[in-house]
Amino acid sequence: MTAESKAKKQRAALIAAAVLFIVSAVWCGYLLFRQSGRQVEIISDGRVLYTLDLDREADREITVEYEGRKNVIAIEDHDIFMKEAECPDHTCIKTGRLGSAGVPIVCLPNKLMIRFKAGTDSAENGGVDAAA
């Protein structure tokens, strides 16, 4: 093997390793950042029933039942809100769309909560981490 071809091989190997490294780094970046979408959880009596990415969800309705009482949750134009609720006060419906204030949508009588997933960037959360 000549010294020249040896050097060529060496360079090729280095380039291959560098390419592999860069590709993996980019892939990692993608994995890390793609979950910063608007992740929402629907929780019933302390149990997470659904974890949804609002940015990817098509318009649809989800019905959740608690002790025979129904709540209808709607997703429209990548927003989520309580559409119907079999509860006395309808506070959950009055809350409107999730998102403007970092306030979860809560139907206390039916122990149902819709909220941004913990760790969701506060900028996606109306700029606040929580509301009092």
């Binding site: 190997a13 280095l14 592999l20 993996s24 990692c28 994995l31 959880e41």
Partner: peptide, 27 residues
């Protein structure tokens, strides 16, 4: 070459964890 490849692989695995963590870390 091996050292760089190992480094690349270790980065891969490191990120792999964050992939699994996408399952809801709740309850």
């Amino acid at each position: 070459y091996l050292a760089i490849a190992a480094l690349a692989v270790s980065v891969f695995t490191g990120c792999g964890n964050s992939e699994t963590a996408k399952a809801p870390a709740i309850s």
